[in-house]
Design a protein around this nucleic acid. Structure first.
Lengths: 219, 219
DNA sequence: AACATAACTTACCGTACGGTAGGTAATTTA
DNA sequence: TAAATTACCTACCGTACGGTAAGTTATGTT
């Protein structure tokens, strides 16, 4: 019996996402994907040009969606602190709810180029995401919301790296779930700094990081 | 003519490093490696149990060496600021001089497990590296060198994530070469924070980040 | 000189992969 | 209702892979 068409396509994408996220592009075979999706191989080749095309569809979806919610979160807030908090919370939330998609897109960024299909061209989309945050910071610096002792790019690196560490931590250890409070703590540290015991601000929002979470870091 | 033995082994490792770093584990074939190393396939299987064993040898080398120089850098300095600066500078230097090895070990951390050989067990080594920095920060907090408004783990995440961002940036864009000055700037930001224009400290050490470096970020 | 071992080589095998040729059943269009 | 198109299926092909069996040459050791 024939299915509804788009439904089959969705099944293939869903199965492919899981396999690619678990085992990477090269290791995953088309056979496995069509097996999971309960369709035949030619069905897959009916909807996608080849294995690489299927992979690209997933990666681009991941990047674009993330960029979209990033902008939305920033637009709905004013002031760099609120904006950063919103962006972080949104990212954390999205990351927790679309773990496989995020694992895939992070994977493509850190994996050696030769392992992935050509024409992936995700560096541009990565840059776009970073530059968006960078511009927010630049603007905030101009408004005096952020210190001018640092180059805007230095600041962007700082917060971006910090956040990515949390994201990757979640991707590696699913039980580690950064949330709204985490976002606020990160922004607070970013703004206040770690230096001295000059009792720089209120101790509000403080939270013990559960030590049971074995970071499993990632260098 | 027969070669000196260990020399052949070294050639194989060197060729394998390059291939694995460029194309990843799954995509690289044993044929390519022995081709580059100008030896035959059985020569490789004479020195290594199998493809996975060869890969493991490289990864473990990378992690252990990095851990060693990390400890050394910390031991030769006192005070958290000097220690962090030294660690960062050492890491940057090592990363620039052993780029392929670093690409390999970062790759293994971010790549999905299914794509790599079993028994890789690099998460422990990653944790070990992170925990070392974490302990330094804990000690500094006790001595009052660092703020107690934050959990020690929060602080460690902050600096560790920040640094990793620079490392990965270099791995993706080789022209971007963080150095001693970069290390000092990062530590300064970590300690002082990005908040306000209260002219928190001297403007010494300030440096413009060359905008010509297109970050190529990585999310 | 005789033997053992280390350090390889050529040649090959079975497997699993990505992809396709060619056919079929349901659905839409004329 | 007939033609065309959509949505698949079974069966298969060529290739390149990881790994090995069996032979060869140099280098000690006795």
């Amino acid at each position: 019996m024939l299915q509804s068409g788009p439904e089959t396509r969705r099944q293939i994408l869903s199965a492919a996402l899981k396999r690619f996220a678990d085992a990477g592009y090269a290791t995953t075979s088309v056979q496995q994907i069509v097996g999971d999706a309960r369709v035949s191989k030619p069905a897959l080749y009916y909807y996608f040009q080849d294995k690489a095309d299927l992979f690209r569809a997933l990666v681009h979806e991941a990047h674009d969606e993330r960029y979209r919610i990033l902008r939305e979160a920033a637009a709905q807030n004013t002031g760099i602190q609120a904006q950063l908090e919103a962006i972080l919370e949104t990212l954390f939330d999205y990351c927790c709810r679309n773990r496989n998609l995020m694992r895939l897109s992070f994977g493509t960024m850190f994996t050696s180029a030769g392992e992935l299909p050509d024409n992936l061209a995700c560096t541009e989309k990565c840059e776009r995401n970073f530059e968006f945050v960078h511009e927010l910071i630049q603007a905030a610096q101009k408004k005096g919301e952020l210190s001018r002792d640092f180059d805007s790019r230095e600041l962007a690196y700082g917060i971006y790296g910090h956040v990515n560490f949390y994201l990757v931590s979640h991707l590696i250890a699913p039980d580690f779930k950064p949330d709204r409070l985490t976002a606020q703590r990160i922004v607070k540290l970013f703004l206040a700094g770690a230096g001295g015991t000059k009792a720089k601000g209120a101790k509000t929002l403080k939270r013990k990081v559960k030590p049971k979470f074995k970071t499993k870091s990632h260098e």
